[in-house]
Design a protein around this nucleic acid. Structure first.
Length: 749
DNA sequence: CCAATAAGTGTTTTT
DNA sequence: CACTTATTGG
């Protein structure tokens, strides 16, 4: 196929008459984005501006108007959920199932490696390992190196290796590049890679990196792919990392048949290597890039939009865009500060209950967002108590549950006997007298030498005392791997359940919940088999390891959503509660270090706020139980970034009523705890000794512009402006922040 | 050599 | 609080 001719074909077809009445469903810039063909397209899509609509319509346009076959289109997103939804919407627009690849980066790469990896040295039947597996492997390596895990944290190296792979740096590349100044890193990286290679394991980063490297090295494979995918669309482009972008470029340069959609203000995955700069680089890397901005927001009332743009406006490094809406002004944003995390949950529960009873909205109109999964516990318990139905999105994921991982490890091992991680995982589950030392010996004599520990002519050398148990174990695995070859996935699983003794073990231990989950797993396998009749167990396992968020009930039941801010991206709800708006929680205290990190937290805040259609609540707790201790934190700085005329302040009456008199107003991050230790240093902060958690009016009256003040956690600075209620401070270290004087004690210097 | 129990510890977000 | 690692008893 002549690649160069492609653009012309596409050009010509624009002239054909539209069969979809786009104009009825799209505004001007949207229409422009949908119909623009012939040069690369960058869509800067603000929150709620209808970007999914643009992508799906564009796909329809490519097929209907440009004569592209569905199989020639590749659309990539970041989450399986997004991919699934997009596929659904495309198919409903096209009026039936379509052969389009709508996948996540990782699942697309995994599939391609299976199909064509042989052309550049990828062995058949590789196993995909997740974070947990990776970490246990890392610990093993640290042990062989005799490195003290206290000093040399496995998590740290694991993270570094991931980042290296995100940047397409293999060992040699990392060394040349001076990726790390720690010599031990390279040693660990080397051992880690050797282990993966020997056992045919791929981590998430490998999926992208190995494909990209393979395509660079095999012209044939690259041409084959380019011939297949004639047009590429990338959603959430701001979340792509270096390697992913490199891969995209390989597929689409120099032809430039590509459309990327993103929003720099919604880049919240920097911690896993995402590079917002990719958006900036795009028009440099692709000639004649057409840029379309989508700035009309169809989701939120003006108040919500104004508040969120003021917050995000505090970020210095942004492309900048102005969202507007034709929806009305809407209600003020409510800020509620409860006495405790429990009180916070109760307030939210009451609010939901009242509105459901009063205005006839449904539970599913409400969502509660939080920064950390750990925060969901209080809501679970309060909502259960108050009989408010809820569903937790994310959290303890189905495929990460112990019993599920164990079962999958059996299956993985049957397919890939060299997989040491899986072997170690299940060797003694259920207990069969094959412990760590025994496995060490077994591995040394088999896997370390490149032989499978079972099913082949290896000679496992273990202590004679254990020989019998080990033999029985290995014989069972051999049998399992035979069944895997010959039977349908559900049959294999049933065989495993019947023979491994795992089920009996759980039953004996009374682990009802886990047994239920294994039933669910069986159902999932059965359903998968039904849906994909000629699929193998390997296909299912791949799905499972990439679909980390899986196991969610797609039930249309009427429930409140409990969800992390990260998971909330891409969703919308009539009423949103953002809980835990406290310093240290959000922004999270670990993100305080670097400037860029705080910006990312702020973007996360922006993402959360812009999910709300009608009403937005920001809530905080004065005292929060976290990790077994009570902490007393100040109100999140983000609250003070919302213009006060858009905010309605409410507080728990119990605040300062004597219940929590032992506490200082939230000051130092993570320092003050429950107990009597908090009474020190009342200073001249307004006579707020024990019992008065607020500054008195009088103490702030003399704060005026240009006077110097000290803030307990931010240090000293100068008052830039104040209206008696809010003061803007320019700190000596360069930071500029606003504080509500009522809650933030500032001492005159 | 293995299993159960005790002490200790660090605490985000996810493909 | 929940999970991981060290210790001891079998």
């Amino acid at each position: 196929m002549n690649l160069a001719g492609r653009r012309e074909i596409v050009y010509l077809s624009i002239a054909m008459s539209s069969t979809i009445p786009y104009g009825l469903h799209l505004n001007v810039p949207q229409l422009e984005a949908v119909t623009h063909i012939g040069s690369p397209l960058l869509v800067l899509a603000g929150a709620g501006s209808g970007k999914t609509r643009v992508i799906t319509y564009k796909i329809a346009h490519l097929i209907h108007e440009c004569g592209l076959s569905p199989r020639n289109i590749l659309a990539v997103t970041f989450t399986n959920k997004a991919a699934g939804e997009m596929k659904e919407r495309v198919e409903s627009l096209l009026g039936g199932p379509a052969e389009i690849w709508v996948k996540t980066f990782h699942s697309a790469a995994a599939r391609l490696l299976r199909i064509m990896g042989g052309q550049f040295g990828v062995r058949q039947g590789f196993t995909i390992i997740d974070k947990q597996d990776q970490l246990s492997l890392m610990k093993k390596i640290m042990k062989t190196l005799n490195a003290d895990p206290e000093v040399y944290k496995p998590e740290k190296y694991s993270h570094l290796i991931e980042r290296a792979k995100d940047n397409l740096l293999d060992l040699a590349g990392a060394q040349k590049n001076g990726f790390s100044s720690d010599p031990l890193f390279y040693e660990i990286y080397r051992l880690y890679e050797e282990k993966l290679e020997r056992e045919n394991l791929f981590d998430f980063g490998d999926l992208i990196a190995r494909l990209s490297r393979g395509l660079a090295q095999s012209q044939g494979a690259l041409l084959q792919l380019k011939n297949r995918f004639r047009y590429v669309l990338v959603d959430e482009f701001q979340d792509t990392n270096y390697a992913q972008y490199a891969l995209v470029k390989q597929l689409t340069l120099p032809e430039g048949n590509i459309c990327v959609v993103g929003d720099d203000d919604q880049s919240i995955y920097g911690f896993r290597g995402a590079k917002v700069e990719n958006i900036l680089n795009f028009s440099r890397d692709y000639r004649d890039t057409k840029i379309v901005k989508l700035e009309e927001n169809y989701r939120s009332f003006q108040t919500i939009l104004s508040a969120s743009s003021r917050v995000i406006g505090n970020n210095p490094d942004r492309l900048g865009k102005t969202l507007y809406t034709h929806k009305g002004k809407g209600d003020k944003i409510v800020f509620f500060r409860a006495a405790s995390d429990y009180g916070e949950a109760q307030y939210i529960a009451e609010e939901i209950r009242d509105q459901v009873n009063g205005t006839g909205c449904r539970f599913s109109d409400f969502a509660v967002f939080y920064r950390m999964n750990a925060q969901s516990r209080v809501f679970e318990s309060v909502f259960t108590q108050e009989r408010i139905p809820y569903t937790i999105v994310g959290g303890l994921r189905f495929y990460e549950r112990e019993e599920i991982k164990d079962t999958l490890a059996y299956l993985r091992l049957a397919l890939n006997p060299l997989d040491e991680v899986s072997l170690r995982r299940i060797a003694n589950k259920p207990p069969r007298g094959v412990g760590e030392k025994t496995v060490d010996a077994l591995v040394r004599s088999t896997i370390d030498r490149g032989f499978p520990p079972f099913g082949g002519g290896a000679h496992p050398e273990v202590s004679p005392a254990k020989a019998q148990q080990v033999d029985a174990f290995l014989a069972a695995l051999t049998e399992l791997s035979r069944v895997v070859q010959s039977d349908q996935p559900p049959v294999v699983l049933k065989h495993l359940y019947d023979t491994s003794g795992y089920i009996e073990w759980l039953r004996k231990e009374g682990k009802e919940e886990k047994l239920k989950n294994l039933d669910e797993l069986y159902n999932a396998v059965e359903e998968f088999s039904k849906k994909n009749p000629d699929s193998t167990l390997a296909d299912f396992l791949e799905e499972a390891s990439l679909n980390q968020g899986g196991g969610e009930e797609g039930s249309p039941v009427d429930r409140v959503f409990l969800i992390t801010l990260h998971n909330a991206k891409g969703l919308e709800f009539p009423v949103v509660f953002m809980a835990g708006m406290e310093e240290g929680i959000f922004p999270h205290f670990l993100s305080g270090e670097k400037r860029e990190d705080l910006q990312e937290e702020r973007r996360l805040c922006y993402v959360g706020m812009t999910r709300a259609m009608d009403r937005l609540y920001l809530t905080a707790a004065r005292v929060r139980k976290l990790y077994g201790r009570s902490v007393d934190r100040g109100v999140s700085a983000f609250i003070f970034e919302v213009p006060k005329e858009l905010l309605e302040w409410k507080e728990d009456r119990r605040l300062g009523s004597g219940l929590f008199d032992d506490f200082e107003p939230g000051l130092k991050p993570w320092s003050s705890q429950t107990g009597g230790s908090a009474r020190r240093e009342a200073g001249r902060g307004g006579g707020r000794g024990a019992g008065l958690p607020r500054l008195r009016e009088g103490s702030t009256a003399h704060l005026d512009a240009n006077c110097r003040v000290v803030h307990k956690s931010f240090g000293s600075g100068k008052v830039v402006a104040t209206d008696g209620e809010i003061a803007e401070i320019q700190f000596d270290d360069g930071k500029k922040m606003k504080f509500m004087l009522k809650y933030t004690p500032l001492l005159k210097e």
